[in-house]
């Protein structure tokens, strides 16, 4: 277990520096005028130019710039946006509603995916299985830019079942529709992986043993088979989080939820480069940390890895 954690940590450190370096390099490297790139097409004033040069240490070497960028990231100093606000304050303001939305989406998606995945695996080839397979295919093919506006139009505006927008202090009910939209991004893959995994595990020898032990069918499936089947599903959570972050940008933009994604989307429109880079960098770090945690969870679920 110890060796596993150490190896993972080392890999994570490497990935961490690699990923942040890529984000940084993409933003600043080889720019004729990095400041104009940050500000996009809008004109920048001389004072902004000075502030940005100082902020990003543009008159120093590339690696030094990267060093200051990383230092800022790790100490929570994300600089100021082109509108003059502190980015860390904007982030502090924005993250609670996004976390609420994402957690709601994950809980909904995981509950439905695991339950439906197990049932279609047990009754594979049956009506329920075929309907879910087709449904997941359709959901899988629905880009979030289609799903979010259409869901808002149909359930929020036309039918009026859900509030079509949400505020910063939104209740869970206000966030339910956007969370469903966001959750649908990951539900199809999770369901399919659960199903395949349960189907494979149902054929495993240890299931026969569990039945020979006179255990109830419920216990065989929900204790013996499920624990094994969840291993590949858990590894998906890490990847899924990346999808959720991406999806949150579109979903929050559509539903006007003033979270992290909304801020990124608005920063793109207003061409506020520092804001985009600041928020994206923080999300990349969160993504990496969560993936590390998922790896550790994976080890907790599968003893064969723990004792490697």
């Amino acid at each position: 277990m110890f060796r596993y954690i150490v190896r993972r940590l080392l890999q994570m450190v490497l990935t961490f520096f690699g990923a942040t370096f890529v984000v940084f390099a993409l933003t600043f490297a080889n720019q004729d005028d990095p400041l104009q790139a940050l500000a996009g097409e809008r004109p920048i004033t001389e004072s902004q130019r000075l502030a940005l040069t100082e902020r990003y240490h543009l008159n120093e070497s590339f690696l030094t710039q990267y060093w200051y960028y990383m230092k800022g990231l790790l100490t929570g100093d994300l600089g100021t946006s082109l509108t003059g606000q502190k980015i860390s304050a904007m982030l502090a303001n924005a993250w609670p509603v996004t976390v609420k939305l994402a957690l709601l989406a994950i809980v909904i998606a995981a509950t439905i995916a695991v339950t439906a995945g197990v049932y279609s695996a047990i009754k594979r080839g049956g009506l329920f299985d075929n309907v879910t397979l087709i449904a997941t295919l359709v959901v899988l093919a629905m880009p979030i830019v289609v799903l979010a506006p259409l869901a808002q139009l149909i359930f929020g505006i036309k039918l009026g079942w859900f509030p079509p927008t949400a505020t910063r202090d939104a209740s869970l009910w206000d966030l339910l529709l956007p969370a469903l939209v966001l959750g649908s991004l990951v539900i199809a893959t999770e369901l399919r992986v659960t199903r395949t995994s349960v189907v494979e595990n149902l054929r495993a020898d240890y299931v026969r043993t569990a039945r020979a032990k006179g255990l109830t069918r419920r216990r065989v499936i929900w204790v013996h088979v499920l624990r094994n089947s969840l291993i590949p599903v858990v590894t998906l959570i890490g990847v899924d989080l990346g999808g959720l972050m991406s999806g949150a940008i579109v979903t929050e933009k559509i539903f006007n939820i003033p979270g992290v994604g909304f801020n990124i989307a608005r920063a793109i429109t207003t061409e506020d480069g520092p804001l985009v880079v600041g928020f994206v960098s923080v999300l990349v770090i969160i993504f990496l940390v969560v993936n590390l945690l998922v790896d550790l969870l994976y080890a907790a679920l599968d003893p064969r890895i723990r004792y490697e």
Partner: peptide
């Protein structure tokens, strides 16, 4: 493989936003 790890360390759309913007 480490290169792929680094690529996968950046959520796709976030990377795409930065790269495409660039």
């Amino acid at each position: 493989s480490r290169g792929v790890d680094i690529m996968l360390g950046i959520p796709f759309l976030l990377g795409a936003i930065v790269l495409s913007n660039r």
